[in-house]
Write a protein that binds this DNA or RNA. Sequence first.
DNA 1: CCTAACTTGTGAATCAATTCACAAGCTCCC
DNA 2: GGGAGCTTGTGAATTGATTCACAAGTTAGG
Lengths: 210, 210
Amino acid sequence: MKRIAESTVRRLSIYLSFLEEIGARGVLTTSSEDLARLGGTTSAQVRKDLSFFGSFGKRGLGYSVPELSSRLREILGLGNEWRVCIVGAGKIGAALARYAGFAERGFLVTGVYDSDPAKIGRTSGGVAVNDIAHLERDVASGKYQIAVLTVPAENAQQIVDTLVNAGLKAILSFAPTQLTTPPDVTLRTVNMAMELEGLTFALTNREPHI
Amino acid sequence: MKRIAESTVRRLSIYLSFLEEIGARGVLTTSSEDLARLGGTTSAQVRKDLSFFGSFGKRGLGYSVPELSSRLREILGLGNEWRVCIVGAGKIGAALARYAGFAERGFLVTGVYDSDPAKIGRTSGGVAVNDIAHLERDVASGKYQIAVLTVPAENAQQIVDTLVNAGLKAILSFAPTQLTTPPDVTLRTVNMAMELEGLTFALTNREPHI
DNA sequence: CCTAACTTGTGAATCAATTCACAAGCTCCC
DNA sequence: GGGAGCTTGTGAATTGATTCACAAGTTAGG
């Protein structure tokens, strides 16, 4: 299969979330035009995005909401459940561990890891906190498919290396630093300071008014 | 000034964070090659990114670390402090309110808002929680330049509309839904479910092995 | 002062993503 | 059955971002 752009995958997520919303309201069919309006893009973009994966609509009619939902869930790999661990039992780690949105989408947080002896053995966001010394062993044994990193920037790369060594293939990092992984390991980074800087850039460099 | 791509702005943030790191270690000059290596890009990309804003280096020599840092801080609008409010005093809101990374960069969280009477009057992440009924008034009076939204998807668009009405120009949303703003209001969205779906897409659609 | 060794800044070329535009297919209704 | 009215799927065209490649500037050393 041809390489799919990250922007396309992000839009598929958006389409799916709308399909589920209108599906829950009982809507049975929709069109690329509807999906575009709700997702802030164009109908041609929607059709092009979907066309990378097949042809799911009916000309003249549009798309079946349940069918397209189910196809997108399949494409996005949401058919089965995913076991997730959170590394770093700080405030953000705890908030994520109990974030309901994860469970709804089939992401099960089944372990939290930290290096602080004061936290090990307690729970964080309803999940037991384990000693980070066991992380490599647990990942290697296949206990998790995805790791979420909420650790300080200083430790992040070393933990990534440990996870990669143990065979993990997918990491979501909240550490405010640039990380590197081998090409077969997917890494996504959410950097809040960077997002805010995007805003202050816009505030600073905007035309005074139109 | 010509329109700057969002990807360029993100890279400027990365360059700045490296410049500050090596600057703190006493390094005085660097090159586009160094910045590229650390930031996971190419030296031509670094030079092109910088060229949109001026010419900050010396041929044959490279860039002065303190000077380029200061130029980038200026470009990104980090010269002054920014007053930020957090709307939604849940777990994530509280974690963000006390996130040290914000203060370090000049982002001051000076107010938290919520609609839950049980939370109003208490503190969240060390900041007083106000009644969301006062949000519009406070924004309109210029108390904040940036709002961070950590509210459920259902309420998010309505709060965005309130903020826009009150004259706010920059919003960072953690609500898992697509939001719309007028063109003169900058909105960035961080959607954790979407990030995880990017990972499962990769896990599901990857070549078995090379 | 002149050459060698670097590194920037930037047009031109390439590569990637988005938009256009239209043939083809489907449904409904007369 | 046939035409009107939609909407998809997709090559072609366009727009946008990245990479190339090299002239021009800088330093160091003899």
